[in-house]
Design a protein around this nucleic acid. Structure first.
Ligand SMILES: [Mn+2]
Ligand SMILES: [Mn+2]
Ligand SMILES: [Mn+2]
Ligand SMILES: [Mn+2]
Lengths: 218, 218
DNA sequence: TATTTTTTTTAGACAAAACTAAATATTACA
DNA sequence: TGTAATATTTAGTTTTGTCTAAAAAAAATA
C-alpha cells in the first residue's frame, strides 16, 4: 500500500517518463514535485524497495509494470472525480483539479466502481484526457496541437495540453471549449499567431502558445 | 488548518464530551483513538496551542467554541458523504462509514456546498444522525431507545445508537430499517428481551442489547 | 491520614517525509 | 585527456505522530 506522497511521486514519474517510455532524472522529478533533489533521492529508494520503480544510482528511475498499473489507477480516480465534479456538481473545468488531487487518494474499490457506473462509464475527463479502465487500459483520441495546422486547416477541439486554471479561463472567455469546430483562417508567419474561426460563428486571434495548447482531431 | 489526525482527535473529543458538555479524560480519549495515553498527552497540548481545546494538566480537555465548530464541520462532511454513498451510489448503510472516514477530510468549501445542494439538503444521514448546516446548527429528532418502552408501546424507528456493520447487517436481516413502525408486544422480564411487531407485518424477538440500539420517536 | 492503585505526564526513540550543506559521480568542453 | 560545471547522493536536522518505560500526580482505600 502506497502513501499519498508515494502515489504522487509515482504519478509524476509516470507523467515525466511519457507513460513509462523514458527514464526520469532526479532533478526533473524534483522540479515536477516542487521539492529538492535530495528528497527525491530518498523517495526513489523507497519506491524501488516497493518494486514500483527500477532505480540505479546516478542513472534515474524507470517505472515498473506494477508501478504503471498503480499510477494509472490513481489517474483513473483523478479523472473520474473530475467528471463527477463537472457533470454532477456543476464545477467549471478550471475548478476541478485541486479537489481531484485530494479525492484521487481515497481508497475504496467499491467507491470507484460505483462512481464510474454513476457517471455512465465516461471515456474522457473534462479536459479531454482519457480515463483508464480498471486494468489501466484506455484509448487515446488521435489529436494534434492546433499550431500544427496551416491556413485552411480545420478540426474539432478534443482536449487541452495545459490544464491550468488561467488557460482554461482564457478559453472560457474566448468561448472555445471541447467540441468546438475550429478553422484556421490565417497563420501569421512572424510569430506563429493565428486567426481562427470558431463554430462558423466568430473569428479571433490567438497566440502561438495558445495554439500549442489546443488539441484537435481532424 | 488542522491535519487529518488533529481532525480525528477533535471529532473524538466532541463525541466523548457529549457535544461539548463534559470534560474528556486522557485515558478515555486514548481508548477511543486506539492509541496510548502518552500520545494523547502530546496531541492535546498541540490542540490546546491551536485553541480548539482547553487543557489543564491532569484535568483533561474541554472542547472550545472554535473546536466545536470545526468538529461539527467534519461531522457535516462525514454525514453528507454517507448520504451520497447510499442515495447516489447504492451503498448499503453498513458500507459507508469507512469510506466517509476518508472523505470527511477533503478540503473544499465549494465541494461540500455543492454536494449538499446535489443531495437536496438532507437533514439526516443513513443512520438517522442529524447533519449540521454550515454554521454547525442542527435539530436533533426527539428519540428514545426501544428498550425504554413497555408492552403496548409503539413508535417509528428514526436512528440507530450503534452504527457498526454487524448491527446494521443484523437489522437488514430482520428487515428492520429507519421508518419501520415498531410495536412492543411483550417485554420478557427475565433479561429485558422483547417481542416486537414490525410494520404490522411480522413479529420477532430481539435482545435487550438490540433494543437499546434502536432509536424510535413516538 | 498513610499507603496503594490508577491516571497522566515526561523522557527518549522511531518512522515518514521534508530540508540544507557537504561530498561524490557524471557530463561537458577546453 | 584533464578540468570545470552539473547532477546526484549522503549526512545531519526538523516536524508530525507514534511508541515504551519511567516519573509524577491524583484518586481510592485501608
Ligand atoms: Mn486534473
Ligand atoms: Mn483532467
Ligand atoms: Mn459514519
Ligand atoms: Mn452515520
Amino acid at each position: 500500500m502506497l502513501s499519498f506522497v508515494e502515489e504522487n511521486y509515482l504519478k509524476a514519474i509516470y507523467h515525466l517518463s511519457g507513460s513509462g517510455e523514458r527514464i526520469v532524472s532526479t532533478n526533473s522529478l524534483a522540479e515536477e514535485m516542487s521539492t529538492t533533489p535530495a528528497s527525491v533521492s530518498d523517495m526513489v529508494k523507497k519506491l524501488s524497495q516497493k518494486a514500483v520503480v527500477d532505480y540505479r544510482k546516478y542513472q534515474g528511475v524507470n517505472i515498473s509494470e506494477d508501478g504503471k498499473k498503480l499510477a494509472l489507477h490513481v489517474i483513473r480516480k483523478h479523472r473520474l472525480w473530475e467528471v463527477f465534479l463537472v457533470d454532477k456538481l456543476r464545477f467549471n473545468w478550471d475548478e476541478v483539479h485541486e479537489v481531484a488531487e485530494q479525492l484521487e487518494h481515497i481508497k475504496s474499490p467499491l467507491l470507484i466502481q460505483r462512481l464510474d457506473e454513476f457517471l455512465g462509464y465516461p471515456k474522457y475527463d473534462p479536459h479531454g484526457d482519457p480515463i483508464p479502465d480498471e486494468d489501466g487500459l484506455f484509448t487515446e483520441k488521435k489529436k494534434v496541437p492546433l499550431d500544427n495546422l496551416s491556413s485552411g486547416g480545420k478540426g474539432i477541439m478534443v482536449a487541452v495540453n495545459d490544464s491550468s486554471a488561467s488557460f482554461l479561463k482564457y478559453l472560457d472567455k474566448m468561448e472555445i471549449s471541447i467540441g468546438s469546430k475550429i478553422e484556421v483562417v490565417e497563420v501569421i508567419e512572424f510569430d506563429g499567431s493565428m486567426d481562427i474561426r470558431i463554430d462558423d460563428r466568430k473569428n479571433l486571434t490567438i497566440s502561438n502558445t495558445v495554439a500549442q495548447n489546443i488539441l484537435i482531431s481532424q
